[in-house]
Design a binder for these strands. Structure first.
Length: 229
DNA sequence: CCGCGGATCTTCT
DNA sequence: GAAGATCCGCGGA
């Protein structure tokens, strides 16, 4: 019953469900990380669909020599010391998922970016719940405020039901997809979270007006409804 | 509201 | 054998 994808794609047309194409992901990680803000990540299972609007991302690059703009490489990146069984997805094609377990308890979802063979990725750190609120609340029983359902990388994956079973999943097809959304009015750029070494490059991007951002930069004053500059 | 520390197990040296 | 792209509960202001 669904009409065939028409040959004429027109931006601003009646259909609002534009899925991000491969070319979107096949760019440098910092560029993709910034442009992902406002986009909507949706996951459909037999339980239904849950979706969040992305409001916080981090870019990670590769080993020394892998990228002209980062000659010394990115020591904080999982790909910095070369391919292993865990991180091999980062060397694969852009637009696929790289999911890993951290601290033996939390799954974190990344999107592979850049050219194949250049191991970059974007960590999805936080999102605002959009659809499937009940489903996400059921997956995050201890959470009180809906703004906190997908706040933090481990929580985002948990709320959406993303696990290592989605390792390598193609985000342009299948149950896990990212579509165009409402871009933030104000984007803030900071050093990445929990990156050792003190001084880190400005590779964390966030929606400065979102209440679902996880670390420094979150504009969470104005909680009671009044906003003031 | 904010800061602190333990949990927990996979991955790599 | 050690550390980790984290989370949550706890205690204090």
């Amino acid at each position: 019953m669904s009409p065939p994808a028409s040959s004429s794609r027109r931006p601003g047309g009646p259909t609002g469900a534009r899925v991000l194409p491969r070319t979107f992901f096949a760019r440098d990680a910092d560029r993709v990380a910034r442009d992902l803000l406002g986009c909507v990540l949706a996951h459909t299972t037999h339980e239904g669909t849950a979706a969040v609007r992305l409001v916080e991302t981090e870019a990670y690059f590769g080993p020394p020599g892998a990228h002209p703009r980062h000659p010394a490489g990115d020591p904080a990146s999982h790909s910095h010391r070369g391919p292993t069984e865990r991180n091999r997805a980062m060397w694969g094609r852009a637009g696929h998922a790289y999911v890993y377990l951290i601290y033996g308890a939390h799954e974190c979802m990344n999107v592979v970016t850049g050219r194949e063979g250049d191991p970059q990725a974007v960590l999805l750190r936080a999102g605002e719940p959009v659809t499937g609120l009940d489903l996400m609340r059921a997956r995050r029983l201890a959470v009180r405020r809906d703004d906190d359902l997908a706040r933090g990388p481990g929580n985002l994956a948990r709320a959406l039901g993303v696990t290592r079973a989605h390792y390598g999943a193609d985000l342009t097809r299948g149950p896990l997809r990212i579509r165009v959304g409402r871009a933030p009015a104000r984007i803030e750029v900071t050093p990445r979270i929990n990156v050792a070494g003190g001084e880190d490059a400005l590779l964390r991007f966030l929606d400065a007006d979102s209440r679902s951002v996880s670390g420094p930069g979150s504009t969470r004053r104005r909680a009671a409804g009044r906003d003031g500059p």
